[in-house]
Design a protein around this nucleic acid. Structure first.
Lengths: 215, 215
DNA sequence: ATGGGTATCCCTAGTTTAAGGGAAAATACG
DNA sequence: CGTATTTTCCCTTAAACTAGGGATACCCAT
């Protein structure tokens, strides 16, 4: 039996979810309220610890975002399925970083909700593709990683030089590059000499640091 | 018409995918090869720019991880669907941060692959629930820790070795490191020998890719 | 058709890195 | 106290990289 808790201020939706869960053979509702504050005041009376909490993020009062860490520290190991009306990548990101296990975008079908609960139950994490895209993009900017940086064109490298540069940065030796590109060792050496001149470096390390944007 | 490229070293799987894509009315294969190196050497001859590249991450030679940024800078706007045999959260994380748009865990059904391609086509991002869980956990650890200084510690490097490693990655030569740390050249050489043993690499490039790639 | 850019090839010399061997202190820990 | 770890130092060989020189051929544009 999978125990579910609900925190959702939309009365209509909450009733619908309550009803749906009650109808499931393998699920049971342990609490259902409209606000975080309400949950905080009744949680010790409710007694039973839920396996999964369906949490609306757009609540009045205490933010659902803050609620995530509150709830997961109160119920260690609980799965939190965030419900949101807005498709905001930043909110999704923050929710996931705060400990959410899934993200459900309103409006959703109850079958979809159930499916997500199932996946959470088995330790998985689910986001819809659009939210996922936004979340990954947010993560990329957060971590300043190079998503699609054109690292070589800006230095005026030729096509061939770009090929050589890519292989060099990826870790291939001159000899390996010559084999891959079907040219002699000296040709590779020649290209690299020209690359270094254009990029104004005089060693492989300097080149790597340059194209990695480290200076 | 959606144009697909394949980089996969498993001949059986590659042929299967090629065949499947050829049979789809709305897809067309623009290239198919077994290694990154091969793609780098033939890409300008292939001519047509794909909309989506199916990329095996567990390739011999240049890592598929490195390939992601190379491919996405060569084909701006391309969607990259990473195929992996291992369920490694770190790899998934790194792949997504490098610009991947989806993650497909081997073995997979071709219908599943097609579904992911469809979602990528519409700008979405897909990961299976298990990989997603690992990825989010990795992100949480990254997000909640500084994540810059302790990247060498996990390999069991000593304090001195960490100093040497940092200088090495920063671009210092053995000689420069010896001056900075006030030790002899041979001592630096010695430390680096030990570092490489611990990290299980045998060249500076491999070391750099290891420490700046997976952590 | 002359000159510039690209791409190929060769030789040579010097520097840097990689990895094998061995060895001596200092420090930490049970 | 003895043992393991850390840090230091040396020699040697092989491989890889850097950089100078020069050379041929193709394409493209002035």
């Amino acid at each position: 039996m999978y125990l579910i808790g609900i925190i959702e201020d939309d009365v209509q939706l909450r009733k619908t979810m309550e009803n749906y869960i009650s109808l499931q053979q393998d699920m049971s509702l342990v609490f259902s309220c409209n606000r975080i504050e309400k949950w905080i005041s009744i949680r010790q009376d409710a007694g039973i610890v839920p396996d999964c909490v369906l949490l609306d993020i757009g609540l009045p009062g205490i933010s659902g975002l803050d609620a995530i860490s509150i709830i997961s520290s109160y119920y260690p190991g609980v799965k939190i399925l965030v419900i949101s009306g807005m498709e905001d990548p930043l909110i999704a990101w923050q929710a996931m970083m705060n400990g959410a296990n899934g993200f459900l975008l309103k409006p959703f079908r109850l079958a979809e909700m159930q499916k997500q609960i199932e996946i959470l139950k088995s330790g998985g994490t689910v986001l819809d593709p659009e939210t996922m895209t936004g979340l990954i993009q947010t993560a990329r900017t957060r971590f300043n990683s190079n998503g699609s940086t054109d690292r070589f064109h800006e230095f005026g490298l030729t096509q061939r030089e770009i090929q050589v540069a890519e292989l060099l940065v990826a870790g291939s030796s001159y000899k390996e590059i010559s084999t891959i590109l079907n040219v002699s060792y000296t040709t590779v050496n020649e290209h690299i000499k020209n690359i270094y001149k254009k990029v104004k470096v005089n060693s492989k390390m300097a080149f790597i640091n340059r194209v990695s944007g480290k200076n």
